[in-house]
């Protein structure tokens, strides 16, 4: 693809040659700024053994602006809403151009291990998590089994 910044080429090469554990990211052939992503649910979390599909897009301003990431697999998580949008500071005001696709995806994986119901995007799920964490985790596991089993 013509005019693809060197930075994106380098990052893509590294993602393929040296993938982060439990994470894959493959660019579309017709649009090298668009990636198909899979993230394995972290062990010990209600999302363990699940494989979650996501899409990642690098906007024109990248890396000055953060990538856009969205889950495609349904997931019961207080910081991820019905449309798969993710509430994560580094995807917004805490973005630094020194961060990379790899670091972003690792941060998202970490978010699966440690939900933050005090800063929720999906308020109903967050409420569930705050009021009855055990039961909420049970639902998360159910959803993982139902929608994210590989």
């Amino acid at each position: 693809m013509a005019g693809l910044p060197k930075r994106i080429i380098k990052e893509t090469e590294r993602l393929v040659a040296d993938p982060a554990p439990g994470i894959t990211a493959l660019p579309h052939e017709d649009n090298l700024r668009y990636f198909d992503v899979t993230i394995q649910g972290p062990d010990g979390s209600p999302f363990a053994n699940g494989v979650f599909r996501a899409e990642l897009f690098l906007p024109e301003e990248y890396p000055m602006a953060p990538p856009k990431v969205r889950f495609l697999t349904k997931i019961y998580h207080p910081n991820i809403d019905k449309l798969g949008r993710i509430c994560l500071d580094i995807l917004k005001d805490k973005w630094s151009p020194a961060l990379q696709i790899r670091t972003v995806l690792l941060s998202i994986q970490a978010l699966l291990s440690s939900p933050n119901p005090d800063d929720p995007l999906a308020t109903d799920v967050a409420k569930h998590y705050k009021e009855n964490e055990k039961d909420a985790q049970r639902v998360s596991r159910e959803w993982t089994e139902k929608y994210a089993s590989a």
């Binding site: 910044p5 060197k6 930075r7 080429i9 380098k10 990052e11 890396p63 151009p97 020194a98």
Partner: peptide, 14 residues
């Protein structure tokens, strides 16, 4: 930089 080849900008990979 005296040895520019050793430096790579982490932002643009130049």
């Amino acid at each position: 930089l005296d040895t520019p080849t050793e430096f790579m900008c982490a932002i643009c990979c130049d």
